[in-house]
Nucleic acid binder design. Structure first.
Length: 119
DNA sequence: AGTATGACTCATC
DNA sequence: AGATGAGCCATAC
């Protein structure tokens, strides 16, 4: 089972995201050592059912929720994020607010943190 | 084996 | 900020 490690690494990367922080699918994939596997991350999340997995901290690269607006997962994720102190507005996550609250953010947009820009 | 689909990303308009 | 098109990876049919 060689591909088990891939899924395991992805899950580990997701669990590695601190509460109140967010990360994009691509970032998770990259962190898991699987560049360009953002879609794989999405598929893993969709397929995996772990109550302890902070799947709600995974967003699109735009900082927006990946689910279709109005869908169950959409509302669920928004509610969970808000519960962790992340500012969510109309399916959009304000990473600037999160960064302001938790100076040690895992990922932030260039507009909010020009110095933290990478890639 | 080729096509369609998806919790994606990027460049461009 | 929002919409479009193209690229990319894995799965399902």
């Amino acid at each position: 089972m060689a591909d088990e490690s891939a899924e395991t690494r992805i899950l580990a990367a997701i669990r590695n995201v601190p509460a109140g922080c967010v990360a994009s699918y691509g970032e998770i994939a990259r962190r898991a050592g699987l560049p360009r596997r953002a879609r794989l991350v999405a598929r893993v999340l969709a397929h995996n059912q772990d109550p302890g997995l902070p799947w709600h901290r995974v967003l699109r690269s735009d900082g927006r929720i990946a689910f279709r607006p109005g869908s169950r997962g959409f509302r669920e994720q928004g509610a969970r994020l808000r519960r962790e102190g992340v500012a969510v507005e109309n399916g959009r996550v304000r990473l600037a607010a999160a960064a302001d609250d938790l100076d040690a953010l895992l990922w932030a947009p260039p507009a909010a943190a020009p110095g933290a820009k990478r890639r």
